[in-house]
Structures are given as C-alpha cells and as structure tokens.
C-alpha cells in the first residue's frame, strides 16, 4: 500500500515528539488562549523565545516550519492592509504623511501586534501537528474528554468513530486514485476549461467515491456486528498513554510563561509596578 502522509507529522524522535499527546494538547489549547492576552511586543518576544526552544528541541528544520506558514501569508498581508486602510483608533501621534495616507504611531503598533498574533497563533498548533501523529492526537483527545462521560457523553463511541475515520483515509485516497485513473482511461479531462466545467468534470469521480464509501461503511458495520461489537466501553488499548519526566517540566515551564504574560497584561504584582517601566508598553 502506498504511504500517505496525513497532516504534516515529521518524525525525529525528539523529546517533544515523545511527550504525552495530552500534555501537548493542553499546552496548545492554553497557548491559543494566552496569545489573546498579549498586547505588547515584549510579551510576543517571550513567546518567541519559548517557541524557538521548542523548535530547537524538536529538531525539526526551521525551513520546514516556515514552509507550512505559506498558507497564511495571504491572510497576514490582507489583515495588515485592512488595519492600515481602515484605522479608527488613537490618532494623536503622526509618524508619516504621504499623499492621501497618514500613518499614526498607535496604528503601526496595532498592525505589528495583529501580525504577531496571527503568526504565533498558527505556529503553535503547527508545532503540535509536526510532532504528533493523528492517532496520538485522537488518543489524547479521548483521554482528555473522559470526564464528559460523567454527563453521559458517549466519549468511547466518539473515539472509535474518530479512529475508524482515520483508518479509512488511506483506503479512500487509494480508491480515489483508482477511480481517477479509470475515468482518465475514458479520456475524462480534469485539467482544462473554466471553473464550472472543471467542477462538473469532478462528478465522475465524486459519485463512485460516494457510493464506495457507503459500501465500505456498510461492510464494516456488518463485519463489526457479526463479531458482536456492542460498544467500546471497556476497550483496552495497546499503547497506553504515559507521562514521562519531561511532561511535568514542560507544563511547569509553560505555566511560568503564562503567568508572566498575565502579569504583563494585568500588572497584579504589588512589589513591581509595570507602569513605571514605560518601555514595556
């Protein structure tokens, strides 16, 4: 069977790769929340240091990571342009005036912050998918969602649905290749014509693919039924999730970072007054 790379997992066997997926999931979720609390460049600088450390430990080539950011370049440019054109904030300090455009100090700062926020927002989850396989991710999610079973959410069923879905992706992708080849043999043309023509040319692929997924699902359901599958409540697993020594280290370091970020934002420590340090803001 042809190997299909799902997502962008990049195996190097580093400490980050070996982290428990639950640790990585928790940190990533908290990281996204944290990004929203940051409104200074100093804050982003701290996050940058943390991320650089993660990248270095993970041994993933930096070029590889930058390549995965290509997709958001458009979004980044678009957002920055919009902020530059339609700015309605503090207009007290003019930095530059040229033709019909006037740029204010606060406007430029806001632009930079928005760009940073987007950049870091994408980079964090990217590191997660670079260092964690989809199977590990589902296992981690299932484990984290376990408490929901108390309010009768069928977590075990959701988990088995997720793992079956993952299992079927390579099969369906193989099937798609086959169908494309078969229709190409009948001189189907997927490459020329306008967008409507091309969309229409997909029908001979989509319909067989749809019928074959339904067929496969039905066959699998019958096979599971005939082996008395009832629910997955007491399923044991081959690879149990385990915390290692590096998991608490990462969690503590991350909590420390989060604490500093919150402090920068809310200035709640009585013995140091941030407002006296003007350069931070």
């Amino acid at each position: 069977m042809r190997e299909i790379s799902l997502g962008q997992y990049y195996p190097t066997g580093s400490l980050i790769h070996k982290l428990d997926p639950r640790t990585k999931l928790l940190i990533t979720i908290a990281y996204i929340v944290m990004i929203f609390f940051i409104d200074t460049f100093v804050g982003f600088g701290l996050v940058f240091i943390g991320l650089m450390a993660t990248v270095l430990i993970s041994k993933i080539p930096v070029t590889k990571i930058l390549k995965s950011l290509k997709a958001i370049i458009f979004l980044l440019v678009f957002t920055v342009l919009m902020t530059l054109l339609f700015y309605g904030g503090d207009k007290s300090e003019v930095v530059l005036s040229w033709w019909i455009f006037t740029f204010y100090k606060q406007q430029l700062i806001d632009c930079g912050l928005i760009a940073c926020r987007l950049f870091f927002m994408v980079l964090g989850p990217t590191m997660l998918t670079f260092t964690t396989t989809p199977v590990q991710l589902t296992d981690g999610m299932q484990s984290l969602l376990k408490p929901l079973a108390l309010i009768k959410v069928p977590v075990h069923l959701l988990a088995i649905i997720m793992s079956i879905t993952l299992r079927f992706i390579p099969s369906l992708s193989e099937e798609t290749d086959k169908i494309i080849n078969a229709q190409k043999s009948r001189c189907a043309d997927f490459e020329s014509g306008n967008i409507f023509k091309r969309a229409k040319a997909m029908i001979p692929i989509l319909i067989p693919l749809l019928t074959s997924s339904i067929r496969r699902a039905e066959e699998l359901a019958c096979a599971m039924d005939s082996r008395c599958f009832k629910d997955a409540k007491n399923r044991t697993r081959m690879n149990k999730l385990k915390f290692g020594w590096f998991d608490p280290v990462c969690l503590i370091l991350f909590c420390a970072l989060f604490f500093v970020v919150l402090w920068l934002k809310f200035n709640f420590l009585p013995f140091v007054d941030l407002t006296s340090l003007g350069w931070i803001v």
Partner: peptide, 17 residues
C-alpha cells in the same frame, strides 16, 4: 487512450451516470 482501452479491477465501482 482511444486505441488502448483499459478495464480496471472491479470496473463496476466506477459507474456514475
């Protein structure tokens, strides 16, 4: 492809119309 006709394995799975 009009000279060489290709019938794949399980060709019935490619019907669509």
């Amino acid at each position: 492809r009009s000279k060489v006709g290709m019938v794949f394995q399980y060709p019935e799975y490619q019907l669509f119309a």
